[in-house]
């Protein structure tokens, strides 16, 4: 059963890697692009670099992972708070929602350097950029989840002496949880992008920083290796949240 689930995507990935390996290793890819061969690494070449430079890559991955997790958590706290505030008052929601949407129209690539000017080369600008793009899917999906609350269940609870907080806790929160997890999964996926942009705007470590340096030095294989590690981080976070959802939301 498990195998039948995993086999198709695995085969597609392996086939694509195989094609790439073939095209890169006999120089066909470099020739057709009119490039030197070292600029067009093969998967095996990337794997080799990943292994050779593992200490460097892991060290920088650590920096980026800390940024992602901290930024994601900050976004979760802000996002959930905003969603609950919007739910509690129509006025607040109408006043605040346009602002939440507007926050997503700010091009991250433009705001990132500004934040670096304000907050320096440390973790703060990265944290703010990551939470800026993460908080939107969390707010929207949490609010959407809260809105799924069954009004009849709420009236039943009122009739059975539930307080406003009791209804929130026993009806609204469980109803919204699947939405919270959906938002968190999307946020985990985009958090990686935020981290890279943040590091590009100014950093002295991190995978985004490493990619930028390798780009300048034409270390193409190591760039790919860093991108691969970034992907792994995003997928791992996504899977972790999915796992958590299955443990917490058992009634679905």
């Amino acid at each position: 059963m498990k195998l039948r689930l995993w086999l198709p995507p695995l085969l597609v990935v392996l086939a694509l890697l195989g094609l790439w390996q073939l095209a890169a290793s006999n120089g066909f890819l470099a020739d057709s692009l009119g490039l030197e061969e070292f600029l067009v690494p093969s998967p095996s070449g990337i794997a080799e670099v990943l292994w050779q430079d593992r200490d460097l890559i892991l060290e920088n991955a650590g920096t980026t992972l800390v940024e992602i997790v901290a930024g994601f958590c900050l976004a979760l706290v802000i996002g959930l708070t905003v969603a609950v505030l919007f739910r509690s008052s129509d006025l607040v929601r109408r006043a605040g929602y346009p602002l939440v949407v507007a926050s997503q129209t700010i091009p991250v690539i433009v705001i990132a350097p500004v934040l670096v000017v304000w907050f320096g080369y440390g973790i703060w600008p990265k944290l703010l950029i990551i939470s800026l793009i993460c908080f939107f899917p969390i707010v929207v999906n949490t609010l959407d989840g809260l809105r799924r609350t069954d009004p009849e269940a709420v009236r039943m609870m009122r009739s059975l002496d539930a307080s406003r907080f009791g209804i929130f806790r026993r009806v609204e929160v469980p109803t919204a949880l699947p939405g919270v997890f959906t938002g968190a999964r999307i946020a985990a996926a985009v958090a990686v992008i935020g981290a890279v942009f943040g590091e590009w705007a100014g950093a002295d470590s991190g995978l985004g920083f490493l990619i930028l340096q390798d780009n300048a030095q034409l270390e193409t294989a190591r760039m790919f290796a860093s991108v691969f590690v970034l992907s792994v981080i995003a997928i791992a976070l996504y899977a972790l949240i999915g796992l958590l959802e299955r443990v917490v939301v058992r009634w679905r």
């Binding site: 059975l160 539930a162 009634w251």
Partner: peptide, 21 residues
């Protein structure tokens, strides 16, 4: 509609009013 809350067991659903109280 019975409006049982799917995240609680039958027993916890039945005792909701007392918890609320």
């Amino acid at each position: 509609r019975d409006c049982l809350l799917p995240w609680y067991s039958a027993l916890d659903n039945a005792g909701l009013a007392l918890v609320n109280q």
